[in-house]
Design a protein around this nucleic acid. Structure first.
Lengths: 137, 137
DNA sequence: TTGCGTGCAAAGGTTTTGCATGGCA
DNA sequence: TGCCATGCAAAACCTTTGCACGCAA
């Protein structure tokens, strides 16, 4: 569970560079494997999975479990936007599968309400709103 | 995706009976398979999965994706709580697994807000709020 | 040199699918 | 009779793990 890297390896640097050049983008472990493979960069898939776990533990990237039976999504956390990500919500369209990022004061209030009135500490990282997007409605 | 049963089969009735005698309980597909196997009732696992999908589509049971890498949970929806369920939100404690039913005006407002401001039609049946309950906090 | 990180392959567990058979209407 | 549902087995899928080798410090 709690894994942090102690060595600075070439593979880790490459992976980190990939995220830094793709901020705000959701990618799966498979996407990353495929990208490196097609780029002629050889990094084993287990190395990718292990480094992803480390980066999540270190708070450098976030992991979202959008859906069972679809792979986990990873997203780079910009150093200067630490608070934003904490309060970012995700909406998943049940029809087209589109993932929408929401950052909204009203949702923050809703979260505070759940905490105060219902004694429930919502975890935005784990919670996904399911429904229909504008196009599919 | 959208599968609804057209025939009334013995297997479907048995599965439905299982849920009706276990209201409010969370079970996995594996649990159900194991239960029938140990009861000497032969129902193929694919039949169970396919019927579960149908029952979810028909709104007779709910499916919760508690965690990746742990199987999906299914729960019977009592007929007499149908209206409630439509506007009822679910909070799932990530630690103790407790499922809390919430019916609250503020959440209704939040839902209306998502619709009006973000053009997203939230589906309360499919959406589960993850976080920590009072005891586990 | 020490021990962590890597790569490969294989395992793990849940869910889906192909196909022939059986059963409902 | 015409489909749909079932059961079996195998595949698909994402992710984790075992192990020997390589590399960082």
């Amino acid at each position: 569970m709690n894994s942090r890297s102690k060595y600075k390896t070439k593979q880790r640097e490459i992976l980190l560079g990939y995220f830094e050049t793709n901020p705000g983008v959701h990618v799966t472990a498979g996407d990353i494997c495929e990208f490196f493979r097609s780029s002629g960069i050889l990094i084993g898939q287990s190395t990718i999975y292990r480094n992803l776990e480390s980066l999540v533990d270190e708070g450098i990237i976030n992991k979202y479990n959008i859906d069972r039976n679809s792979p986990a999504c990873f997203e780079y956390v910009r150093p200067d936007s630490h608070e934003d990500v904490e309060t970012c919500f995700h909406c998943k369209c049940e029809k087209c599968g589109k993932l929408i990022h929401l950052h909204c004061d009203e949702l923050d209030e809703m979260q505070a309400h759940l905490m105060k009135e219902h004694s429930f500490r919502l975890d935005p990282m784990r919670t996904v709103f399911y429904g229909l997007c504008e196009q599919c409605m």
